[in-house]
């Protein structure tokens, strides 16, 4: 269809083309406020980052053009891949747990059987309103195995639990992130549930469907659409993990949170402590490509699911 239109336009000559241009420009007039900001804060920084990633600033010798050297170095950088592996593991474990909890909460609040649904809706969403820095501090103080809440529990129970030991640290960070974002995702799920027309429920109850059957046959299929969005948001968020480990760094014993704990921390430390903003730019670009590729794969996959 579209192909046909295209050939027609070419075939019918220049008169048509002139007409086509005018409405185009009228559209742009409405676009320019957005376009200006978009170019300024999005396009230019990206191209600037790509540009500087081809250079290297040295203390001796100044800035030199190095071509793709930064990228070559990046592919052989064990610390970078270790940090990528860490956030990948984090994503694979934390995102499903968080989204499962969000979906369950959304279903509970939507069930109409919960007393004080409004209270629960707001209180589960509230952590999202707390700045990540503050919530990490709060959790960090609770996690302390000597002076924190965990320490008090240990004293009480005579145990020796340490949630900040290097082996379980990632899970503890996952817990903070889940706490922060479970309400946000719940809200997305909840809003898609509330778009289900009442007639569907009425029809179901006339057919004698149980509550569980309604959930299974009406609500969960509806959630699938918003699942794609929440998964993509969560993957992007996890790959950009920064605030939580960065704040916890000094609270965690034995320097278990390294300067390259996550790709973002690595780029930050290279750029601001290591004076290597060019290499950090190359890293940022590679990370963006990786994240986009994964998000795109997820989206394609979910589109295929929906087509079925």
């Amino acid at each position: 269809m579209a192909g046909n239109l295209g050939t027609q336009a070419v075939a019918s000559g220049s008169a048509v083309r002139v007409n086509k241009h005018k409405p185009d420009w009228r559209g742009w007039k409405f676009m320019w406020p957005f376009a200006v900001v978009f170019v300024l804060v999005f396009i230019i920084p990206i191209f600037y980052a790509i540009y500087i990633s081809f250079f290297e600033k040295r203390m001796v010798g100044g800035t030199v053009f190095v071509g793709i050297d930064n990228y070559i170095r990046l592919f052989g950088d064990d610390q970078f891949w270790a940090s990528c592996g860490r956030v990948a593991l984090f994503t694979v474990v934390q995102v499903p747990i968080m989204l499962f909890l969000s979906a369950v909460m959304a279903l509970c609040i939507d069930s109409m059987k919960l007393h004080g649904a409004k209270f629960f809706r707001i209180s589960t969403f509230l952590p999202y309103g707390v700045p990540a820095v503050v919530s990490t501090m709060i959790w960090g103080f609770m996690y302390g195995s000597k002076y924190g809440l965990v320490g008090s529990l240990n004293d009480l129970l005579g145990t020796n639990i340490d949630v900040l030991s290097p082996d379980v640290l990632l899970a503890s960070i996952g817990n903070i992130v889940t706490w922060e974002f479970v309400g946000y995702n719940m809200l997305i799920f909840y809003s898609s549930l509330s778009t289900i027309p009442h007639s569907l429920y009425e029809a179901a109850s006339i057919d004698g469907a149980s509550e569980w059957q309604i959930v299974k046959s009406i609500k969960i299929p509806e959630l699938k659409g918003s699942l794609a969005i929440t998964v993509i948001f969560s993957i992007i968020g996890s790959f950009q993990l920064f605030n939580e480990p960065n704040i916890l760094q000094n609270m965690v014993p034995g320097n278990a949170i390294t300067t390259y704990y996550t790709p973002n921390m690595y780029a930050y430390n290279l750029s601001f402590s290591g004076n290597q903003s060019n290499y950090a730019a190359a890293m940022a670009i590679v990370m963006a490509v990786i994240t986009m590729a994964i998000a795109y794969a997820v989206q394609l996959n979910s589109m295929k699911e929906q087509m079925k």
């Binding site: 000597k146 000094n250 609270m251 965690v252 014993p253």
Partner: peptide
Amino acid sequence: NVRINAWSDD
């Protein structure tokens, strides 16, 4: 004590 970092709350 390897569990306490300088300048931390602990």
